[in-house]
Design a binder for these strands. Structure first.
Lengths: 163, 163
DNA sequence: GCGGAAGTACTCGGATACCCACTGTCCGAGTAGGGAGGG
DNA sequence: CCCTCCCTACTCGGACAGTGGGTATCCGAGTACTTCCGC
């Protein structure tokens, strides 16, 4: 069980998009170069984010992506699910119903298997943590961790690429 | 991101092994037939459980697996990790260090990326739920859910297979 | 009848193919900006 | 000088190969039971 690498990329890109003014579009090309990842493949993650209405894309020169909602209104869960899908990590195959002693009348799919229930509960705890963590929190934490000089340099670098 | 189907099988098998007396060995063949899964493949999951010291295997006729610890001392987390591995679901690739504005002296790997930190926190919440849920809890819950008549039939069926 | 040894049948364990999904790449559709030309 | 139109160049979006891990399977090593034989 492993999350796609795209998840990491997507979160980093969202964090960057949350920093620039909302009228600035940043193309995938720049996002890819800044993060050192393959442009063409990153675009798939960006497409997923666009489909989930987390970013908005525009074509043509000066085109690219911008954030579609306030950073405080976007949770990590939304980003992760946009890229990774909303399927649960544990998909119950209802193995319990293969018991040779069970008759059809006992195979009630409305009663969830206790084992699946426990796994779902764990999934829910995972989702809950990610739901509470907002993109704005990440931005603030990184601001606190990374020296201001680096942040300024990065901003200038981005602006230089947009010309 | 999806867990192996083996996880489900392994938990069901552990639940069954927790029910029989500790001196009875159940072969993979019977476990597979009871749960309706391919015998040869299930054996890989059982091997993983044996490696993790959750079950003990014996060869020869009347051989098979038995539980190695008390059910109340075995958590779902142990079973899941035995089959799925202990790697975290999110493996940080340190994309942040690809920032072209960063110098080497700023690439301190001892300071964890806040994004990775958030993901690890979610993982930890997931693990915590599974750690608290013991195999004995599952056994009790299933006892409460499944009619006693079915449980008895299943026990007889298993004993019949062991002849 | 009893003990021991050989044979057998059954088990686990690791080594071996197959297949799907993640990874990585490419090209086409569409658009916004910029420049040229005319008024 | 300004407006309009066309062209270009750049973007996103979806369609197309490559690879690694999960899935499924097989066969060999090893052991405990069973049976047979000798005492």
């Amino acid at each position: 069980m492993k999350l796609k690498n795209q998840v990491e990329w997507a979160i980093h890109c969202m964090e960057l998009l949350a920093r620039v003014p909302s009228d600035v579009y940043i193309p995938t090309k720049v996002l890819a170069k800044f993060h050192g990842v393959p442009k063409e493949y990153l675009s798939k993650a960006m497409q997923a984010l666009a489909t989930a209405k987390l970013v908005e894309g525009t074509l043509g020169p000066k085109g690219g992506y911008r954030i579609a909602k306030k950073a405080s209104k976007i949770s990590l869960l939304e980003i992760v699910e946009a890229v990774e899908g909303k399927k649960r990590t544990f998909n119950c195959q209802e193995v319990r119903f293969n018991n040779p002693c069970l008759k059809k009348e006992h195979k009630d799919k409305n009663v969830t298997c206790m084992i699946a229930g426990a796994m779902y509960e764990a999934d829910e705890a995972w989702r809950k943590v990610l739901h509470k963590k907002k993109l704005s929190d990440i931005v603030a934490e990184i601001d606190h961790q990374v020296p201001a000089s680096i942040m300024e340099l990065s901003e200038e670098w981005i602006n230089g690429q947009l010309k």
